[in-house]
Amino acid sequence: MPANQTTGMPQAMPYFQAVASNSMNRKSNADIAGEEDHRVLLATNICKSYSIGGEPRRVLDDVDFHTYAGEMVFLCGPSGSGKSTLLSILGCLLECDSGEVWIDNRRVDQLSVSERTNVRRRNIGFVFQRFQLIRGLNAEDNVAVPLTLQGVSLNDARERSGELLSRVGLGLHRKQQPNAMSPGQCQRVALARAVITAPRLLLADEPTAALDGKSGNEVMELLAELVADTGSATVVVTHDPRILGYADRVCEIENGQFK
């Protein structure tokens, strides 16, 4: 895979043409930089401290961050550097101590818990390190969950989920339970679940950490394709140097600050 795969992406897929009204083709970094309108995520002066053993410890120290629609930004850094904390704050899962977070021109850091829940539901897709698929639900139903949370009927959600699973190469595994699938397949299902609503923002936490090298690359290929299809602004937290080539931009964080 080339270091920057913003060109030569697969043709836009019918699923997202139908679903994602906000879908857009990926753009080069130069294009993106010139288009402030496409800045989906903006975080400024983010600070966050934890109390460890009674002592406050600053995990994020005045961090600024932004991503554009269709851009894939990687957050790298050693363990404890603040990557996951930043991802949680960007994903409205965690409140920052100070600073501002804007998603789609809406300030979200001051919202109530229920409003932030709604922002996550409407605007954000998540990919987790350990897939976090729901046992008991087959692949199709797992992928359908975010749609049903948005009020889509179960039958419609299943239909769209089935189409997307075919898109990610799991058309024949629609009815399979997560425990009957390989880790690579599970992460594909998780990717499909994350993008089925064509979210404005896609956050991935170490998506290849639980996969072998081959599966990791396949998943990243797929992620890049899906991001291209949906136009989602994407932030990937990773330790894995093998996948850095998929990034449009790599931000390295250490001791709570970008290098």
Partner: peptide, 18 residues
């Protein structure tokens, strides 16, 4: 046994009511 699944549902935007 499924606490992380509930956390996942919450992360994806499930409300307390749901």
């Amino acid at each position: 046994d499924r606490i992380s699944e509930f956390a996942t549902l919450k992360a994806m935007g499930s409300t307390e009511r749901e």
